[in-house]
Design a binder for these strands. Structure first.
Lengths: 203, 203
DNA sequence: ACAATTATCGACCAGTTGGTCATTATTTGG
DNA sequence: CCAAATAATGACCAACTGGTCGATAATTGT
């Protein structure tokens, strides 16, 4: 690896990281390429050496950041012991905390969502976003299914509806935490997950 | 009321309604004043007779729309019968459906959230938004409290955490429904609410 | 009917910013 | 050390759009 390549890697990382910060702080439209360049310590033109245009940079940030969060949240789920209820609880807590630890950049998700929602132009965001959710939903649904088989959970439990509800509550709680910094979201989240799982149990 | 006033009322309604549509479709920044004017069937200058600038128009839409939804969702909650669990279930369903019925304009909430989250400039969005959530949270917390008193719900239940969890799951489920139109959100929501409320019950 | 008042309009202007490209700086191979 | 190749830069341009304002139209009171 020569000097050019080292430089390229370092600069690419600096650009992505700075772009995440600036997009979080200002939103997609208000974030200026010049801002991102300054934050990354590079010239404005350099950014266009790495990304075709602003939208391509944004999509790169989207993939980089969601990969990072997905890796952080799911990594220790497999290694956990205990019955399905206990492991589901641990998975929910760990996923929640993985995102909560990055609360100050959570606002960029509003931009991701907005990009994903526009059905005309931005199909790739939607696909990629649903893919990410589906991974988590599948993981959760697997635990719910397992819990039903081992008679920890109620036999009539709707696996998919439960998984979707749990995933949704993660997003919703994060939104509340982000809007209201006085809200003790980790505690509330843990108690809420306990309640939901209590409702899932076989009597 | 003379002709001027009638015209003003009609035009103001047309402008707000068109603004909601355009902001939903394109997002705050990409929505052009000219687009909104055309959709409302008025000249561009006319909009500035009613609203100082684009941001003032957006805030007016925010208040108008959230008032509308709040009115729709909570109106029949008081009139319901049954025990606390039954009434809580009905309140959750009715609130969910009130927003779900307007799913195609749900995306404007992403813009509202983004506006509310920026702590520097937009304190009034944050205050107004938290106020709206607090009304719903208080309503739910009241039912939870009542359920605890009447021994329908578990005595150790954390009222605030439960209420926040339920409110959050509304937002989260709506987001999922909006991103994925194949998701049968009303059914999943109802089943999830059932599960949560089951977990709240005294054994 | 007519002039004063009120409301509407859209061409225009000024400020902003994504993206380009000629110039400069750095690295490489020999 | 030098020239070719590669990378970085930021002044500049073109496009876009929020907001203004002089001109026009509708309504009112008399």
């Amino acid at each position: 690896m020569n000097k050019w390549e080292k430089n390229k890697q370092a600069k690419q990382a600096a650009i992505l990281s700075s772009a995440l910060t600036i997009f979080s702080e200002k939103g997609y439209t208000a974030a200026k390429i010049a801002d991102i360049a300054r934050a990354a310590g590079v010239g404005k033109g350099t950014i266009y050496e790495y990304y075709r245009n602003k939208e391509a940079l944004f999509f790169a940030v989207f993939q980089w950041y969601t990969d990072f969060l997905a890796g952080n949240s799911m990594v220790d789920a497999a290694s956990l012991g205990g019955n399905a209820a206990r492991r589901l609880n641990a998975l929910m807590r760990s996923t929640f905390m993985a995102v909560y630890d990055q609360l100050d950049t959570f606002s960029v998700f509003l931009e991701f969502w907005a990009a994903a929602g526009n059905p005309a132009i931005r199909e790739r965001y939607r696909v990629s976003m649903l893919n990410m959710y589906e991974k988590l939903t599948t993981l959760i649904a697997g635990l719910v299914e397992e819990g039903k088989r081992s008679r920890v959970f109620h036999p009539d439990l709707d696996v998919h509806a439960t998984a979707m509800g749990l995933v949704s509550s993660l997003d919703g709680l994060m939104l509340q935490a982000w809007m209201d910094r006085t809200f003790d979201a980790p505690t509330a989240a843990n108690r809420f997950f306990d309640t939901v799982i209590r409702g899932m149990r076989a009597k």
